[in-house]
Write a protein that binds this DNA or RNA. Structure first.
Lengths: 194, 194
DNA sequence: CGTGGAGTTGAATACGATCAACACCGGTGG
DNA sequence: CCACCGGTGTTGATCGTATTCAACTCCACG
């Protein structure tokens, strides 16, 4: 909870007093490594803010293969917009790749925060625009880049995550097989002695 | 302009009177087919709402190949968030695939609309969440689906666009070559006599 | 007409996927 | 303490899908 408070006070215009008013909307929860946080087809009314640990959103295709949409390490948000905003069931799964502590954030929290603190509206909007920007970038990468380029982009975007996430997961994020990723890494090692 | 007004009144909570107050922030513009609307590296402070015609956002890779991020036919929005919200230069190009009439929408318009009409805030937010949802879907498609599946998804998502957009453009949206798309279509024709 | 872009088709190629085998490590239980 | 096991990562051989390059047709448009 402290992590979330620090995060908010550092990044958003929410003050200490305003935070206290909103606190009742927040709940802390922990998921042991391996827990399913959200299952495809289920519903949920909250966003997860990761205080520590690592969550991951992924889908399963008809062959049972996993495709990772997003990783959420400390200070990241993750949530299912289908449930929260569109009264539909979740289209992806979320699980915990590490023991993870989260703050559950209701739609109500976001609403009230905007009432209590008018500037929070702009902050929240900026967050959404940033999210869109980031996803555009990812789409462009999937359209334009080779496996090797995607991997280099990945380790640049998440330098500290590379060691925490298995290559199986990374590969499923990059849209390649673990075997291919292994070969990409081998080729890079030969090139630059990484 | 009328198209935009109709659209707003149908989809958002903005009333006729409120619209009149905001009108001064809006400008109509037309782009002949083939015009560059925004160039990578440039800046812009507006979103484009397409009243008629068709815009398209795309990037160029280092081999000069085009990769289409988004099509924007009638009643769609398109814009460069890097410029508008993050004071950076555009990372993609936008051009007109048809003679296109747009309404230019400033950040100010969106701000004032939220001031004048409090419910517009929710509408705008929903638009952003919907956008994110849509892009998640696209990312998942690029990760999980074959060329054929992607094409089928495409014609389902944009049934009326298929005939207006050249296969070269569609291929660049799907992340395959025009030749591959041609073969995919041939295979489908054989299968289902489309 | 004739020119150039769009679309199709064929042949050769390349990149990543698949399948299979194996080394390695960490955890578990005998 | 060691044997076993399952999961991870590596490597090799083969396969398949999409790419590349090239030739050709077909229009639309000058």
């Amino acid at each position: 909870m402290q992590v979330f408070k620090d995060y908010l006070q550092q990044h958003s215009p929410i003050t200490e007093e305003q935070f206290q008013l909103l606190r009742k909307e927040l709940k802390v929860k922990t998921y042991p490594k391996g827990t399913m946080v959200l299952r495809e087809g289920g519903t949920t009314q909250v966003f997860w803010f990761v205080c520590s640990g690592l969550l991951r959103a992924y889908t399963l295709d008809n062959q049972g293969k996993e495709h990772t949409l997003q990783f959420a390490p400390e200070n990241w948000w993750i949530g299912d917009r289908n449930s929260i905003y569109f009264h539909e069931s979740a289209v992806f799964n979320i699980d915990a790749l590490e023991d993870t502590e989260v703050v559950l954030i209701t739609k109500n929290f976001l609403e009230e925060a905007q009432t209590i603190c008018p500037d929070f509206r702009k902050y929240n909007e900026l967050l959404l625009h940033n999210n869109i920007r980031h996803m555009q970038c990812r789409i462009n990468q999937l359209l334009a880049a080779t496996a090797e380029e995607r991997y280099l982009d990945f380790i640049q975007l998440y330098p500290n995550l590379t060691l925490r996430i298995s290559q199986i997961m990374i590969a499923s994020y990059l849209g390649i097989t673990p075997e291919s990723l292994s070969r990409v890494r081998k080729a890079l090692a030969k090139k630059h002695s990484y």
